[in-house]
């Protein structure tokens, strides 16, 4: 009997609290697989965010720190600078990273902190119940945009990979999705590379993951996958926005 695929060792046995069909769990698994494959599990220290990912500190088998909303890159900076041999990641959602934590993510990139950021973009505030995020699409309904996001009032969605690609210190930026097995495989490659970069000392690496949120999109799982493909991808094209080898 051969095990072809099973829960990676870098995940604990704690069942995840995420809603059915949510993309967070897929991304957790891809990260954990990367730790196992790169044989860095013993060195990983993770930073869990505020938001749906707040309980991520229960799911990863590595040591975890959970801090304040948006401050993941600052906390990760403190950990990495104190323990340079640690492999440090900050796991963040779109409200966390692109709104309240905008300064922290930009300046972690400016300093080219040798950390890995996993950025979950589902175009909505999940944990608080579906409020408008900085990444909410034009016309997309949210509890704080009941008539849909109106650019005249609320501006346009922000594309983080494109924005950070202007920063010299940002060394690796890729946007992926987890809506199909093919995209999940590509996401795995990107996430693994983002951690490999840290092992090599390349500098600031971030993977943005387009992720489905059936609950707060008020959609079935199928509709949610469709939304990722037909609505999110035109606004947030997949691809590599920056890939520089060692500085």
């Amino acid at each position: 009997m051969t095990i072809l695929a099973k829960k990676p060792q870098s995940l604990t046995d704690v069942p995840m609290h995420y809603c059915p069909g949510c993309g967070h769990g897929i991304v957790h698994r891809l990260m954990a697989e990367s730790f196992d494959e790169l044989q860095i599990a013993d060195r990983v220290i993770g930073v869990a965010p505020v938001g749906c990912g707040v309980f991520a500190d229960d799911y990863f088998a590595c040591d975890m720190v959970q801090g304040a909303h948006g401050r993941g890159p600052a906390i990760a900076t403190g950990i990495k600078r104190s323990k340079p041999k640690a492999i440090v990641f900050s796991y963040q959602g779109d409200g966390d990273l692109a709104s309240i934590g905008m300064a922290e993510i930009v300046h972690a990139a400016v300093r080219s902190e040798n950390i890995t950021v996993i950025f979950i973009n589902n175009a909505i505030y999940g944990m608080t119940g579906g409020q408008m995020a900085p990444t909410t699409l034009v016309g997309q309904v949210a509890t704080t945009a009941p008539k849909g996001r109106d650019p005249k009032l609320q501006g346009w969605p922000i594309n983080m990979c494109e924005m950070l690609s202007q920063i010299t210190g940002a060394k690796y930026l890729e946007r992926v999705a987890v809506d199909t097995p093919q995209h999940v495989m590509a996401a795995k490659k990107a996430i693994k590379k983002a951690f490999e970069n840290q092992v090599k000392g390349v500098g600031f690496s971030m993977v943005e993951v387009l992720s489905q949120c059936p609950t707060n999109w008020h959609a079935s799982v199928d509709q949610a996958l469709e939304f990722v493909r037909t609505q999110m991808m035109p606004q947030y094209p997949l691809g590599v926005f920056k890939d520089e080898e060692a500085r």
Binding site: A5, K7, L11, C22, H24, I26, H28, R29, V178, P181
Partner: peptide, 12 residues
């Protein structure tokens, strides 16, 4: 690959 809850083990 798609399971968000890592509930599936594939065995040969």
């Amino acid at each position: 690959m798609m399971c968000p809850d890592v509930a599936i083990t594939v065995i040969k």
